[in-house]
Design a protein around this nucleic acid. Structure first.
Length: 93
DNA sequence: ATTATGACCGAAG
DNA sequence: GCTTCGGCCATAA
C-alpha cells in the first residue's frame, strides 16, 4: 500500500522526541496536507502499527490531548511522565 | 462511486 | 465555559 501521506505521518510521529508533542495540524502540515488534521487522527485510529506509533505525543491545537485508544486519561499521564506540562487537562506548548 | 463516520479546526451562538 | 455548524481528508461499508 503506497500512501505517501500516511507514510509521511507515520515517520513524523515516530520522530517526535520524548517530552515534546505535536499538534495534529502541525503533523498534517509537515505531511504535506495542512488541512488533513482530521485525516491524521483518523489514520492513527485506523492504523495497525499504533504499537510503534507514539500517537500519545500528538495533541490537538487547543492544547487538549484529543483521543486515545487506551484512554485520554492514560495519554495525559503518559505525557506528564515524559515531562510535558499539563494544566487542567490541557497542555502547555 | 456514494454515504457515513471520526483521535480535527475554527467560527459563531 | 459549552454546543452547534461548516469545512477538510482518509477509511469503512
Amino acid at each position: 500500500m503506497i500512501d505517501p501521506f500516511r507514510q509521511r505521518v507515520y515517520a513524523i510521529v515516530a520522530k517526535i522526541p520524548s517530552g515534546k508533542v505535536m499538534t495534529y495540524k502541525q503533523v498534517a502540515t509537515s505531511a504535506g496536507k495542512p488541512h488533513a488534521s482530521r485525516a491524521v487522527g483518523n489514520i492513527m485510529h485506523t492504523n495497525k502499527d499504533f504499537v510503534r506509533m507514539p500517537c500519545h505525543r500528538v495533541v490537538r491545537t487547543d492544547g487538549t490531548v484529543g483521543g486515545y485508544v487506551f484512554g485520554t486519561k492514560k495519554k495525559i499521564v503518559k505525557l506528564k511522565k515524559e515531562g510535558v506540562v499539563i494544566k487542567g487537562g490541557k497542555m502547555i506548548f
